[in-house]
């Protein structure tokens, strides 16, 4: 029982950390149909920003200051999203997909370069706040509080996004614009502004994810790529653009990865890719491919 419980717990940890990164990625794809390769780069900038905030405040911080650091990262990266929409995404709306791939890949490289310029090549890191730096024992299981916290954050972000898209006035307009932007503008909706809002939200989620996941990570300019790969796997399996799909896919892939590593500890990181390939062979449109949430 101990092993199964711990393996599930580890799977959920993988799942929710990945979902935190994937949420903004799938949102922007669902609404603007832009596959944003730079998402991992902005996630990384979020992590570095929150690192800087925490160091400036003195290192080992209470929980609430750590949360404020993550929020600051969300706001800063959200503002970068505003700039990126104005300067880049707006020009990609009526051109071939290949251009957006090239443009967002260039942005990813730019993020790496900016991080090197500002923070250098050395590995950086801070500890989680003391409250999150302990372990809870449940029978035989020991669960790091930081991991529990990340799982909670993933669930909260998921529920919040779902509610926002389904219930709020802005969320409704976002769905309308996603379904038919041409008609939306004829109805007098300012489609540009709704796109801008979506981009800012997506980037802010990337920044927030960076801030939340930063403790326990070694910060280096390669950080962007690692999570991006997992996040792409999750949104592809979830059905591109679906928030619910990404959430479910993250759990499925997280559990498969975690059980894979339990049985074959010498091959970490392989099982989620294998599972992704196999599931897509059977169901190429992904889990929620037919019904786009966003």
């Amino acid at each position: 029982m101990y092993d199964v419980g711990m393996t599930v717990f580890n799977g959920l940890a993988w799942a929710m950390a990945t979902f935190l990164v994937a949420a903004g990625l799938t949102l922007i794809f669902g609404i603007l149909h832009i596959l944003n390769f730079a998402h991992g780069g902005f996630f990384m900038i979020g992590a570095y920003v929150s690192y800087t905030v925490m160091i400036a405040l003195g290192g080992a911080l209470p929980l609430w200051l750590y949360l404020i650091g993550a929020m600051v990262a969300g706001v800063v990266v959200g503002l970068l999203g505003w700039a990126v929409d104005m300067l880049v995404f707006r020009r990609l709306r009526d051109v071939d997909d290949a251009y957006s791939l090239i443009a967002t890949y260039a942005l990813l490289l730019l993020c790496g370069g900016v991080v090197q310029l500002i923070w250098g090549l050395n590995y950086l890191g801070v500890m989680p706040p003391p409250v999150l730096n302990s372990v809870i024992f449940l029978g035989d299981m020991f669960m790091p509080t930081y991991t529990i916290f990340i799982i909670l954050c993933g669930v909260l972000v998921y529920v919040g996004l779902e509610l926002f898209i389904a219930k709020s006035q802005t969320g409704r307009l976002i769905r309308v614009v996603a379904a038919d932007p041409w008609m939306a503008q004829l109805l007098g909706l300012n489609v540009k502004r709704i796109y801008l809002f979506t981009v800012i939200l997506s980037f802010a989620l990337a920044g927030l994810a960076g801030g939340l996941l930063m403790p326990n990570q070694s910060l280096s300019p390669e950080l962007g790529g690692i999570f991006l790969l997992q996040a792409f796997g999750v949104i592809i399996l979830g059905g591109m653009g679906s928030i619910r799909g990404a959430f479910l896919a993250a759990i499925v892939l997280g559990l498969i990865e975690s059980f894979g590593v339990y049985f074959f500890p010498q091959y970490p990181g392989i099982f989620f890719l294998l599972a992704l390939a196999i599931i897509l062979l059977i169901k190429p449109e992904g889990i929620m491919g037919r019904e786009q949430t966003a």
Binding site: A184, Q185, L186, L187, G188, L189, N190, V191, K192
Partner: peptide
């Protein structure tokens, strides 16, 4: 832009 024209009453 299109939406601005709609909001002038051209529908």
């Amino acid at each position: 832009a299109t939406d601005a024209r709609s909001r002038m009453g051209l529908v």
